[in-house]
């Protein structure tokens, strides 16, 4: 295991199958009553409400699996921990896809692809996405890629008025 001087996403090992699966894509090998599928809900908020309702009735000993891209699993992980699940009772199965990035210059989060850089949707700074990860926000750290040309992606290289 590599030690980092900063926070990186933590995935904990878990023995045995989960009692409840929350997934972006239906798993035909899983009993229907034991999975919540993103596509069955009108919005992520509705899916999160459904999960919260299930956890409210759940008993200690429950094992939960969250399966999907990082933008999908981390908010659910925060919800599950707030409901009383411990980190090692939640299995995170990460699929490639979108993730959240936190811009250190305007302190806002935004959805992003797996690309190494992007332009902040809120303040326009050209960001390099670091490996540094906030478990609390479920987001990677985005820092100005080139301090000499912070707005390289904007017309004329100028900030928005």
């Amino acid at each position: 295991m590599t030690d980092h001087p900063f926070s990186v996403p933590r995935y904990e090992p878990q023995a045995g199958p989960a009692d409840l699966l929350v997934t972006q894509y239906r798993d035909a090998g899983y009993p229907a009553a034991q999975q919540l599928v993103q596509g069955d809900y009108a919005s992520n908020a509705a899916l999160q409400q459904a999960l919260a309702a299930r956890l409210e009735l759940a008993r200690c000993g429950l094992r939960l699996e969250l399966r999907g891209d990082e933008a999908f699993i981390w908010p659910l992980q925060a919800l599950a921990q707030a409901a009383g699940l411990q980190g090692d009772e939640i299995l995170l199965s990460r699929l490639p896809g979108s993730r959240r990035v936190f811009c250190v210059h305007c302190a806002q989060c935004q959805p992003a692809s797996a690309a190494e850089s992007l332009t902040c949707a809120h303040c326009g700074v050209h960001l390099e996405v670091r490996r540094h990860f906030s478990q609390r926000l479920g987001a990677y750290l985005g820092v100005c890629a080139d301090a000499d040309l912070p707005y390289a992606d904007l017309p004329n290289g100028e900030p928005r008025p």
């Binding site: 956890l55 759940a58 008993r59 200690c60 429950l62 409901a83 009383g84 699940l85």
Partner: peptide, 9 residues
């Protein structure tokens, strides 16, 4: 004693 406890126990 431990049986049937809520998730936050």
């Amino acid at each position: 004693l431990l049986k049937d406890r809520p998730l936050g126990a």
